[in-house]
Amino acid sequence: MSDHMNETKNIMKKKKILPVGHFRGLGAWTFAFFIYLYVPIVVLVFYSFNSNRMVMNWEGFGISWYLKAFSNNNIQQAVLNSLIVATVATACATAIATIGALVLARGGSFKGKTLSLGLITLPLMVPEIVTAVAVLIFFSSIGMNLGLGNVIIAHITFCIPFAFMPIRARLEGMDTTLEQAARDLYATEWETFRFVTVPLLMPGIVAGAMLAFVISLDDFIITLMVGGAGSTTLPVYIYSMIRRGLTPEVNAISTVLLFFSIAIVTAYWIVSKKSQTKTVH
């Protein structure tokens, strides 16, 4: 009965949505906004196909800068480092975030729950430069020097809250009676977790992992501080390239990075779409 009333309430709420479509000039504003957002990126991609040496001087179409970038050993190494760091950091951060989210959403009430929640999401608010300096000082004071390992450890710390948020959101939105139903149907706690909780949580875990992956791949400040020689990641390498002079090679490698990120997001979108249709059929 009360469910029914909530439903009607929701429907009524939906009807009251602001009729933004009627605002005059909204289309033009929206258009301007998207130009503002995307023109720099379009320009970047455009000039990556320039065959001229000068970045802003269009001479003709060519993919020579891509070939150059791909055959650059330093770039290859930086890409490899970036992928290693992002993959390991994402795996660890997602695992930790999942456990944390499970405890906070399903662990009932315990002392320090609110504090834990605050502490796990706090890194989102801490200025990155502060984290970077803190991690750098910490590593040097304990004399830890694992090369890429240092970078990975640093990345895990700031990836956890990003992975945590979507997982927790998913858990909070999950109907706990589904888990009770599983236990009622002769599934032990572990089986319930394995066959009901995890499959239902999966979209949250994938979303969290993707977010963590992209954040790690993209990180510059912390990596620059923590990473020593030999543990240069792609963003750090691109920065050093720019300092040596802007060539379309930078555009080319940035474009590759851009489309790689878009590919990840698209892949996630397709996967989540598929899992939706799977439950429908």
Binding site: D3, D175, T177, L178, Q180, A181, A182, V196, P199, L200, S275, K278, T279
Partner: peptide, 10 residues
Amino acid sequence: FQSYAIFPHL
């Protein structure tokens, strides 16, 4: 269950 608790992924 009141909500029927049908597993949506199955």
